[in-house]
Computed example of a mutant assay.
Amino acid sequence: MNILVVADPLVTFKTYKDTTFAMMRELQKRGHTLAACEPQHLQWQTGHPVSALVRRIELTGAADDWYRVLHQGREALHTFDAVLMRKDPPFDSEFFYATHLLEQAEREGAKVFNSPRALRDHPEKLALMEFAQYAPPTLVTRSPEAIRHFHAEHKDIILKPLDGMGGMGIFRVGPDGMNLGSITETLNQGGATSVMVQAYLPAIVDGDKRLLLIGGKVAPYVLARIPQGTELRGNLAVGGKGVAQPLSDTDRAIAEAIAPTLAARGLLLVGLDMIGDKVTEINVTSPTCFQEIQQQTGFDVPAMFADALEAAMA
């Protein structure tokens, strides 16, 4: 297959842990050819298909100069066998516009993973609403009063912005309500911005688990991202320790209940976040943790992904 990867600049990749790099390495190993571009390189003009300024690349196997450019030029997206949308969050206006360009490319014959429409329809915090039976008590609102009532009911709560990533902007407010007003003002910007509020889950001490749903199936290992020291957040981006572990029976049951629905909508890869037995987020833009799980358990997550992609293209 001839595969285009739409992602952040290649020079920013930390190849020792980057999931997109792991995907590309496995795909090249199977004989597929690779090209890369950034969302800013996408273009549409009346009378022409969606195209991008792409670089045909080959992975070298080296740690530093890990790829070489074979050719650079503008190419129509529908001429590729598959397009992988792997731009990291945040889901901002430019990401939104890119999904529309990619959806037009689909109308022209391109096969895009994850589906651009599904990316728009499943914002990573709000996608949880559809599966509320598996989630902790949750509130999404702009109202400071509603947040105060939620705190009064649940006593110990977590507040976070809807467009956050990597643990950014997450706050905990305990039973004393200390700084609840100030935190609310900071996050909702005087009522201009919606906030997600969830009941605090003590099981966070055992980690914020990332489950991988690939092609409608559940990978057999999770990465538990465990907070360190006095830090509340387990996110790897803020120093959490990633510990791979087998799926629990509860993890599997919940993931297998959710996975087929999301896969049927064109979400080839989903990162399900769980604390204890509760789903806290559903990540679809650029789920990670392939390399951490593979390195610690030996389970070949990139191969599972490549198998699913090849099956989707068959």
Score class of each variant (00 low, 15 high):
residue 1 M to S: 14
residue 1 M to A: 09
residue 4 L to R: 09
residue 4 L to G: 09
residue 11 V to T: 15
residue 15 T to V: 13
residue 15 T to A: 06
residue 16 Y to M: 15
residue 18 D to N: 12
residue 19 T to D: 13
residue 19 T to L: 05
residue 20 T to G: 04
residue 26 E to Y: 11
residue 27 L to Q: 14
residue 29 K to D: 13
residue 36 A to Q: 03
residue 36 A to T: 14
residue 37 C to W: 05
residue 39 P to A: 04
residue 40 Q to P: 01
residue 44 W to V: 00
residue 45 Q to D: 00
residue 49 P to V: 08
residue 50 V to A: 04
residue 53 L to I: 12
residue 56 R to M: 08
residue 58 E to D: 08
residue 65 D to E: 12
residue 70 L to A: 00
residue 71 H to I: 01
residue 72 Q to G: 09
residue 73 G to S: 14
residue 76 A to E: 01
residue 78 H to M: 08
residue 79 T to V: 02
residue 82 A to M: 10
residue 90 P to E: 09
residue 99 T to E: 01
residue 100 H to E: 02
residue 101 L to W: 00
residue 101 L to H: 00
residue 104 Q to V: 04
residue 107 R to Q: 06
residue 107 R to Y: 02
residue 108 E to I: 03
residue 115 S to I: 00
residue 117 R to M: 09
residue 118 A to F: 07
residue 122 H to V: 01
residue 124 E to K: 05
residue 126 L to F: 07
residue 127 A to L: 03
residue 139 L to T: 09
residue 139 L to Y: 06
residue 145 E to H: 06
residue 151 H to R: 00
residue 152 A to W: 01
residue 154 H to Q: 10
residue 158 I to A: 10
residue 164 G to A: 15
residue 166 G to H: 09
residue 168 M to A: 13
residue 168 M to T: 12
residue 169 G to A: 09
residue 173 V to M: 04
residue 173 V to G: 05
residue 174 G to V: 04
residue 176 D to S: 14
residue 177 G to Y: 14
residue 177 G to Q: 12
residue 178 M to L: 12
residue 180 L to H: 01
residue 187 L to N: 13
residue 189 Q to A: 10
residue 190 G to A: 12
residue 191 G to N: 13
residue 192 A to S: 13
residue 194 S to T: 11
residue 195 V to A: 06
residue 199 A to L: 09
residue 199 A to E: 13
residue 200 Y to D: 11
residue 201 L to Y: 15
residue 202 P to S: 15
residue 211 L to N: 11
residue 213 L to F: 10
residue 215 G to P: 07
residue 216 G to Y: 03
residue 219 A to M: 08
residue 220 P to A: 03
residue 221 Y to S: 08
residue 221 Y to G: 03
residue 223 L to A: 02
residue 231 E to Q: 14
residue 235 N to E: 03
residue 237 A to F: 15
residue 239 G to K: 10
residue 239 G to E: 12
residue 241 K to N: 12
residue 241 K to I: 11
residue 243 V to D: 04
residue 246 P to S: 11
residue 250 T to H: 05
residue 251 D to N: 11
residue 252 R to E: 07
residue 252 R to L: 11
residue 254 I to P: 10
residue 256 E to V: 00
residue 258 I to M: 08
residue 258 I to Q: 13
residue 259 A to K: 06
residue 263 A to V: 04
residue 264 A to P: 09
residue 268 L to V: 05
residue 270 V to S: 02
residue 273 D to T: 01
residue 279 V to L: 12
residue 280 T to N: 10
residue 282 I to Q: 07
residue 288 T to S: 11
residue 290 F to E: 03
residue 290 F to Q: 03
residue 291 Q to L: 14
residue 292 E to T: 05
residue 292 E to S: 05
residue 294 Q to I: 06
residue 294 Q to P: 01
residue 294 Q to A: 00
residue 298 G to P: 06
residue 299 F to Y: 07
residue 300 D to S: 03
residue 301 V to I: 14
residue 302 P to R: 03
residue 302 P to V: 09
residue 302 P to G: 06
residue 310 E to R: 10
residue 313 M to E: 04
